[in-house]
Structure formats: structure tokens, C-alpha cells
Design a binder for these strands. Structure first.
Lengths: 409, 409
DNA sequence: AAACTTTATTTATATTTTTATAAAGTTTTA
DNA sequence: TAAAACTTTATAAAAATATAAATAAAGTTT
């Protein structure tokens, strides 16, 4: 018990170092000393212990900045693993990665309908547990499970109010109980934002807004370098702000919501209506196709130059741009990232969005914000799920993992 | 030099304690130990030193929570003073307060036109310096100067891009050079928000939006318990978001801005137009009155039941409500506070604002946000200016003050 | 080559925390 | 109802920890 306690308190700094080295590639003792405001001997001691425990490795010398070259340290990729899970309305992805976010087992993809599916949670948990068993990785080595999912989510309690019902109980506690691994959940758009800020195009920016263009329109907000969720966790509801007085009716019951005017689902429906009216287009439509199939087809067609598809997307883009103008006025972000499924056609959307920004933004504000397109693409949510685990790493007591890793050396 | 260095590093904790005791009324060693994650002996030592130095006094025993009663400590009110300055477009207020925010010298109010006035900075600085001299307070005892002012402000550089030109140089450095006292500036709306969160109706809330209803419509944002300013310091530009497609032309060059539809200045102009058209009202208008006089008259008349004034304010309130609906969707704040000049008629504004929220907000979001009216009123900006100084207290090296206070004991 | 920088290590010093003890309450229970 | 048992807070000593200073090492710049 004595040694246990000592470990917990004393490993605080070590966990902070592991976390930092996960996010940065490599750092020197001097750099870490500066960063954490600890003396170099303290850092050196912690680093040495971490090397003995198998968490950290030397990583060569960095170029001199006018003096002795610093010896860099990196995290040892296979010291721990992270289980990343990404859900959308219909499909689930599971992927075990190492501390460099590289896959250490094949990704598993399977159908998982979230809407009106009371078994979804049990199915997901069973799949996760089975995936881990198959991966051959020791549960002790898994730093945590991170799950991204659509819906209104209470991050601290681990509850999703929209999907994956656990009788109002904590989803994360349920999964932790079944798997024995610390679990974190968050909204898909939030995780995409996290991925973009930590490993994507908005790397190390402090104020980042990430638009998740999909069947809906999500917003993940990074404020002050951290995920922002608002007072009750519902911040970033960009898709239901009142954009126009006379727009079409939205699922939420209001009129003129962005989502009811510019989401991929709505664009698909408009396309179907257009085809029925005989619009000239390369798009085909069979009566038994569902709208989502059409959505993907539109993205494809637009990228191939189909005029009708481009017109529909431009229209949507302009409305998105108007919403972004509002967002810029309120948040004054450094960066807005277009991400999610719709990022495929970001080049087409860019022009009408910029046009709307010019019309609706005070120049002083629009000049301060850079509009970028995600490079992570479909991987963003999975990376974000992994990041979520490591974001919480210094808070979670991973002395357990530390001990087992020591034994493994 | 040895003792000097020791003081600087070691006084970090002491400065943090002073800051905390400024914001909280009284705290125990145990409480501070918990808060700062320092051992009780460390806190006790720091507290004892602070008492010897004359910064902290014992403040009686708090009720027991099931054990020995904690001895509480408070900041000694006259250990330091803060100089608070509040500017609006036309008038300046200067007020020296102690660490309980109580006045220690009479408030000075004087005309200071900010617009097109190259002398404004020199005048202000001279007034500040003269005020301090007259107050009889030793400059060594003044923890800092905090100034709230309208305009686009770069807080870190201390520059106001709109008013108080110092040839593009730092305002704060200029004032520091002339007075010899650390100086901080911030936007008036931001300081009002700070005041509301620290000593006002939104006390200790983490996510607070404060609407500064005045000649314009300002927004001060508290995010994650701290003032939020955005990437380039321009966050919170609520007054220029595109609210309607066909609204009247705004100063900013766009159409349909909130400010062009619902600010007190616009309401006054509408009132004048109405009177000229012969509307029945108790309001009087002389051709040589300027709109701002009318603005105050409208608030008065509305509170006295004048139908026309109430109608005009209700109309403005509804538009403000629509903007707040957008703000709630994006920020999901715990609290929205109506503050500034217009808070006088907040009761009249409340109804149309709530009506707009019901129309434009998803219920899940509007229920999570409380709409409140400021109780600080006209003092808010001054209190915020004082708070600004103490917010930065732990960062500024106040060992100097600490030493002089010691000598004074 | 000399002077300066930056980084790393060692040792002596200073600081902080833990542990033990006491003090001052409240709650439980006999 | 009073004593026993438990809580919370405070203090003083010993033990653990972190830091500063000195020194060395490895570069760059003058």
C-alpha cells in the first residue's frame, strides 16, 4: 500500500510526460522542463524511470540551436495500445492503435443501426470485447477505449441521450464493467475536431471550428486549445440556428434551420426531386434507392463535373457560408476546417462559402479566420477517439499499466 | 539578490492566495490546500508570512462540517488598492478601491470624447495621475490600473485599434511609463462580463454570456470560467451577425445587423421618427436634442408605462431574442445576463426575448440557459476593471508591493 | 582559438510533504 | 445522556523530494 500510494502521486509527472510525447513526436529534457515548469533534474529522473519502465525511448539528437544538441525522447510505440471506436448511424468501426496511432490489428467494420435498436449497446460491447480477444493484445496494455458517436452526449456521466440506451445509466460504466478497460465517449463531431487539432490540418491551433459535413451538419469546437462542450454539453448546435424566416421545415420542428437547407440528406432529396422533374444530369435514380445512396452519388457526380450536382452543392455551400459567417462573428476562430463525408467536395463548396463570408462577415473578422479542408478524411473520427483516451490519460490512474509494462521489460 | 530571487519564486503561492482571497471572501488553510493541491503546512507557512506582511488577517471560525472548525483568513482590505477606470464614448470614470472593492477615494467623472480626439490618451493619463496624487495613496500600494473602454482591443499588446491612439503603440505601456503602475485594458463589454461572473448575478458560473445593452449591443463571453476573446481578440461580435436579409443599413456596411435593428441608438431614432409622424406618446423631442438624450428618455418613459416606448423596446427585444437564440445554439451557456444601460428596462425586454427564444430555440437548449438581469448596473464596468487587475495579479511580479507593505507594518 | 550558448549531470541545499500528534468539533451508541 | 468513536483542522517533527549551483559536455559564433 505504501508503494502503491507513492506510485500514484509520483507518477503524475510521468503520465504528463507520456501524454505530451503522444501528442508531440519527440521532446528533450530541457523542453519538458520549460513546459512543465519543473527542474531539469526532475524531468531527467522521470524520463529515466519511464525508459526503464519501457514507455519512453531515446530518439537521437535534435539540431543545435546554438549550443549542445538536445537528446530527444519519444514514446515507445508499443508500450500501450488504444482502442478507437467510431460509430455513425449505421456502421461501426473498431481499430486498435499504438501510441503512434498506427494500427496494431486489422480494423473491424460492421453494421450497427443506432436508431430504434435496443440491442445496439450489447452488440457493440460484445464486438469490442471480441475484437480485443482476437487482437491478441493484453487488456492491461490498453490505455483505454475511446468511442465517437452521434447524438447528444453527456461526457462526464458517459450517457448518450439519443442512442445506445443503457436505461439512462452510464454507457461508459457499462462498457468498463464488461471489458475492464477505462472508456470515454464523445460526440462524433467533437472527436473529429479533436483529431484535426491534434494531428490534422489545424494542428496546435487554439481556436478551431470543425464542420462535420454529413447527413446532418455537425460542429466540433476547440476553444482555448480544448474541446468546448458548453454548460450542459450541447454547444455547437450550428445546424439548428435560425438562418432564414421561410425555409423548409426541419426535423427539430422549426423552420429555416441550416440542416434543413444544406445537409447532404437534403441535397440528396433535392436531387431526387430534380431528376423527377427531368433535370439534365448524369445522376440516376431508382425508386427503391434511399436518399443516402443518392448523397454519395452526388458527391461523386459533382467531382466529375455534373452541372446539376454542382449547382445543388453550391446552393448548400452558400447557406453553410452564411452560418459560418455567424460562427466567425461569435467565436473569431483561427481556423475553420471542413471535414466529414462532405469534405470530398470541399473544393466545390469553398467558392460559395467564401462568397457568403464576403457578403456576411465584417472584413476584420473574416481575414482573421482561415478556411481549410480536412486531410484526415474518414479517419478523423477514429483518430479523435484515440486522442480522447490520451487526453484523459493524465487524469486516469494508469499506474497499473505502468507496473505491468515494467514487468514486461 | 539572493533574497530577491527567493521572494519572486516563493511568492508565487502567496500571490495566488491573495488573488483567491480577493475573489472569495474568506478561506481556511484546509480549503486552500485542497484548492491549490499543496500540503497544509505549505499553505500555513504562506498564510503566516502573508499575515506578517500585512496582506491577510484572521477572520474568525467557520461553522464545523463535522470536525474541528476551520480558522478563516481574509485579505486585509487596505493592504493594496486598485485603480479602476471605465470609459464610454463620451465620459470617463476613475475610482480607487480597496481589496474589498470599496471606494477609498471619491470617484472622479469627466468628459472624455474618444472619437476623433488625438488628445484623449494624454488627457486620460494626466487625469489618472492627478487622481492618484489627490487620493493620497502611495503608488507602491496600488496593485494596478484596470481600464475598460469601447473599441477593438488587443489585450496582450495593450492596443485599442479604434480609439485612444498612441501611434499604434501600446496604450498600457504608455500609461505604465507615465504613472509607474502596471496597467491592463480590456473591452467594456468583456469587463462587464467579468464583473458579473466574479461579483454579480452570474457569480462562479463557468459559461456566461453578458449582453451590454447600450448605444451599441456588446457581448462579453465567459468560457470555461475565463474571459474569451477569440483568436485575434474580436470574439463576441454579436451585433453584426446577419439577422435578416432586408434590414436597414448598418454602420459596418452590411444589412440586417442586430445593432442596426435593436440598439438603443436605433430605438431612439425610431422614436424621433415616430414623434414626427405624430405618434401618441409622452415623449418630447426638440429638434436640437441628439439621439442619445432621447435614448435615456425612452427608457424612462417605458418604465413609466408609455405605450409607444414599450412598443419600440419590445420590437428591439424580439430581435435581441433571436440573436440570443443563435448564441445559445452555439455556446450553450449556463447564464445570459442582460447588463449595461438598457438593463434598466430589462423587465420590459424580457417578455419579447423569451418569446423569441421559444420560437427560435430547440427546447433542450433554451431550458439549459438562464436569462438574468444584472444587479450591478452602472458599476459593472468599474468593478470589472478592478477585477481585471486582480485577474492578472498572480502573473505580475508584485514582490515590490509585498516588500513595501511589509515595511508599512 | 576564444567566447558564448545550450544541454546534461552531480552534489549540496532548500523546500515540501508525510507522518505522528494534538486540538476541537460532531455523531453514534451503550 | 454521557462516553466512545469518528471527522476535520492545526502543528511539529522527520523523511522525502525538488531545486539551485557548480561542473562538464557539446555545439555555434565571433
Amino acid at each position: 500500500m505504501e508503494a502503491e500510494n507513492k506510485g500514484v502521486k509520483g507518477s503524475q509527472l510521468k503520465n504528463m510526460i507520456i501524454k505530451k510525447l503522444y501528442f508531440n513526436k519527440a521532446m528533450s529534457c530541457a523542453g519538458l522542463s520549460e513546459l512543465f515548469d519543473k527542474s531539469i533534474p526532475s524531468i531527467a529522473k522521470a524520463i529515466n524511470e519511464l525508459m526503464h519502465e519501457g514507455f519512453v525511448v531515446e530518439d537521437g539528437y535534435a539540431p543545435s540551436s546554438g549550443g549542445r544538441r538536445p537528446l530527444m525522447y519519444s514514446v515507445k510505440a508499443n508500450a500501450m495500445y488504444i482502442l478507437a471506436v467510431a460509430l455513425d448511424q449505421l456502421t461501426a468501426r473498431i481499430q486498435l492503435v499504438d501510441l503512434l496511432n498506427n494500427p496494431v490489428a486489422e480494423m473491424r467494420t460492421f453494421e450497427l443501426k443506432l436508431h430504434n435498436n435496443p440491442d445496439s449497446l450489447a452488440t457493440l460491447t460484445a464486438q469490442i470485447d471480441d475484437y480485443i480477444k482476437n487482437s491478441g493484445a493484453s487488456k492491461d496494455k490498453i490505455a483505454g477505449i475511446g468511442i465517437g458517436m452521434p447524438g447528444f452526449i453527456n461526457v462526464t456521466e458517459g450517457i448518450n441521450y439519443t442512442y445506445l440506451d443503457a436505461n439512462g445509466q452510464s454507457l461508459t460504466k457499462y462498457i468498463e464493467a464488461k471489458t475492464g478497460i477505462v472508456t470515454y465517449i464523445d460526440n462524433d463531431s467533437s472527436l473529429i475536431a479533436l483529431a484535426e487539432q491534434k494531428f490534422g490540418i489545424a494542428k496546435s491551433q487554439q481556436e478551431v471550428m470543425v464542420i462535420n459535413l454529413g447527413w446532418g451538419i455537425g460542429l466540433g469546437m476547440i476553444v482555448n486549445g480544448k474541446l468546448f462542450r458548453g454548460h450542459t454539453g450541447f454547444a455547437g448546435e450550428l445546424s439548428h440556428i435560425p438562418l432564414s424566416e421561410d425555409g423548409s421545415l426541419c426535423d427539430c420542428g422549426k423552420r429555416g434551420c441550416l440542416e434543413a437547407e444544406a445537409s447532404l440528406l437534403v441535397v440528396a432529396q433535392k436531387a431526387i426531386a430534380g431528376i423527377k422533374q427531368g433535370r439534365v444530369t448524369s445522376l440516376k435514380y431508382n425508386e427503391n434507392d434511399h436518399s443516402k445512396l443518392m448523397g454519395d452519388a452526388i458527391l461523386e457526380a459533382a467531382n466529375n463535373g455534373d452541372q446539376f450536382a454542382i449547382e445543388l452543392l453550391s446552393d448548400a455551400g452558400y447557406k453553410i457560408g452564411k452560418a459560418l459567417a455567424i460562427l466567425i462573428h461569435i467565436m473569431n476562430p483561427a481556423t475553420i476546417v471542413l471535414s466529414g463525408r462532405g469534405a470530398r467536395v470541399a473544393k466545390i463548396l469553398m467558392a460559395p462559402i467564401q462568397q457568403a463570408l464576403h457578403k456576411y462577415c465584417i472584413p476584420r473578422l473574416s481575414t482573421g479566420t482561415e478556411l481549410l479542408v480536412s486531410e484526415l478524411g474518414f479517419d478523423a473520427e477514429l483518430i479523435g477517439a484515440a486522442v480522447l483516451v490520451m487526453e484523459n490519460f493524465d487524469k486516469s490512474v494508469k499506474a497499473k499499466v505502468a507496473k505491468s509494462a515494467k514487468a514486461a521489460v
